[in-house]
Simulated assay, not measured.
Amino acid sequence: MTGERLRFDGWIAGVGTSSGTRVVVGHWPRSPFGPFSDVMVQRPGGKRLLLAPSGPVADFVAATYRFDRIDVVPVAVSVSGDVWLVEAGPLRLRLRTGRQSPFGLLLSAVPASFARSPLWARLCDLPARTLMPGVRTLGSAGSGRREWYGARGLRPVLAADASWGGASLGALAPLDPPVAFGFGSAPRRPCVVRVTTTVERRAPSG
């Protein structure tokens, strides 16, 4: 029996920095919690932080992924053309994206209803793991949940300027080593992925 399926429709931006800090931004105009954005950060020593805009979002995300610290802070993401501006607690991040890649164009041709299905995620999982080590499109999440990602577009990140508490995090770099929040990482090459994420909670017993 399948459980309750919660869908988050939006974008995931993943970048690395030359300081070793890696940042994954989720920007969700449509979700069970209404529009929101959240930020997952992994510091050079491996510490994993969640920057969430509210208690309910923090509780849900922390039950699905793994973190060493969780902070509820204002999180603001604005997108204008190819420029993203992210402000979340001590983090300031500015991204500039490029044109949709050929792979992204192929993904965008997939009908939205099929892209949301676990079948599509299953079909994409092996190619994703082969072409982008560390990336998975479906797997087991925290609290006995299942999760899958339906990618529907991809743009490279061409430039980034990031700071933490006013101190620069360095130049744009590959997201390496992979982040360790859940069963898979964002791609090594900095990018923004158009995605529908589905989290399936376990059906109540009895």
Rank of each mutant, 00 (worst) to 15 (best):
V41Y: 08
H27A: 11
G206I: 11
G16K: 04
S143G: 12
P187K: 14
V25E: 09
T64L: 08
P187V: 06
S143H: 15
L105D: 12
G170C: 08
L106T: 11
L51E: 01
S185N: 05
R22W: 10
E87M: 03
L105C: 09
P118T: 08
G3E: 14
T17P: 07
H27F: 15
P111G: 05
R30H: 14
L138S: 08
V135S: 05
F114D: 01
P190K: 08
W148G: 00
F181G: 01
L131M: 14
W148A: 00
L119F: 06
P102Y: 05
A121M: 01
P178T: 02
I70R: 15
W164G: 00
S18Q: 04
L6E: 04
P29H: 06
S117G: 03
T97N: 07
S37G: 14
V195T: 07
V195F: 01
P74E: 08
M132R: 09
G14P: 11
P127A: 06
L172T: 14
P127K: 03
P127R: 04
R30N: 07
P111Q: 03
L123H: 02
G16Q: 05
P74I: 09
M40Q: 15
L169P: 03
S54N: 07
G20K: 00
R152V: 10
A52Q: 07
G55V: 10
R129Q: 13
A62G: 02
G170I: 08
D125I: 01
G139S: 09
V192F: 10
W28R: 13
P190Q: 05
P174L: 15
L172I: 14
V135Y: 02
Y65A: 10
G150R: 00
L85S: 14
P118L: 02
V157S: 03
G81S: 09
V41L: 15
W28Q: 13
V199Q: 00
G139T: 13
A121F: 03
L105K: 15
P53C: 01
G153W: 02
R92S: 12
S78C: 05
A112W: 13
V25P: 00
V25M: 12
F103W: 12
L105P: 04
P56A: 05
D59N: 11
R7M: 09
P111H: 01
V23A: 06
R201C: 02
W120L: 11
R202F: 06
T197A: 12
M1K: 14
A173C: 03
P204W: 01
F60Y: 15
V79L: 15
R94M: 08
P156I: 05
V179I: 11
G3D: 09
S117M: 07
T97R: 04
T64Q: 08
V73A: 10
D59L: 11
L154A: 14
D68M: 05
V75R: 00
G184V: 04
D71W: 13
V79M: 12
Q42C: 06
G134T: 08
G206N: 10
L51G: 04
I70K: 12
D9K: 10
P177W: 03
A13L: 11
Q42S: 08
A141M: 13
R122W: 13
L91A: 00
L169H: 01
H27R: 12
S78A: 14
